[in-house]
């Protein structure tokens, strides 16, 4: 025990926060609301529990690998366990305000919160649904008639 190095949980959290969503470079998985718990014990064993946007999300392996790699690089970490939780369920209100701003400004992606209609990230105009099927399970496709733009919408 005397040789064990105590690792602050903040260091672990920072390492996890350094991992970006593989399809949104620059958007941390923390801001996307994927991180449920981070724990580290006195033996340097780290446990991270994540919540998938969708259980069938094809990026789960890649995200878990990235988290493992980032955490393993922290001084004093002896092992890392990354798990995916089936509960709670991910919803778009888990996305932080920073996350929403990054999605809107860098990727022109809107976020739908609950049944409330989302607005155009470019001009604030109302969006018209185009298709519930986007390039991934967590996104649908809308359009803004005001500024003539095709908009992806993150949804739960």
């Amino acid at each position: 025990m005397s040789t064990a190095q105590l690792i602050s949980i903040d260091t672990i959290r920072a390492a996890v926060a350094s991992v970006d969503d593989p399809e949104y470079p620059g958007l941390s998985i923390v801001d996307l609301g994927l991180v449920e718990t981070c724990d580290v014990n006195e033996r340097g064993e780290v446990t991270i529990e994540l919540v998938p946007t969708f259980t069938g999300c094809p990026a789960l392996n890649v995200i878990a690998d990235d988290v493992t790699q980032a955490v393993a690089a922290v001084d004093g970490v002896t092992s890392t366990h990354v798990g995916w939780l089936l509960s709670p369920t991910w919803t778009t209100d888990r996305i932080s305000d920073i996350g929403k701003a990054i999605l809107a400004e860098r990727f022109t992606v809107a976020v739908q919160i609950g049944p409330k209609a989302s607005t155009c990230p470019r001009c604030g105009g109302p969006l018209t649904d185009e298709s519930m099927f986007g390039p991934s399970r967590c996104r649908s496709v809308s359009r803004c008639n005001a500024c003539v733009e095709t908009i992806e919408v993150m949804r739960a």
Binding site: P58, E130, F133, R139, T150
Partner: peptide, 23 residues
């Protein structure tokens, strides 16, 4: 899983691009 992901991505990209082209 990676093939499923790519399929959905490519079809989704096609969809977005057809919308942009049609505009």
């Amino acid at each position: 899983m990676s093939v499923v992901a790519k399929t959905q991505d490519e079809i989704g990209h096609g969809h977005l691009l057809y919308m942009v082209a049609a505009d």
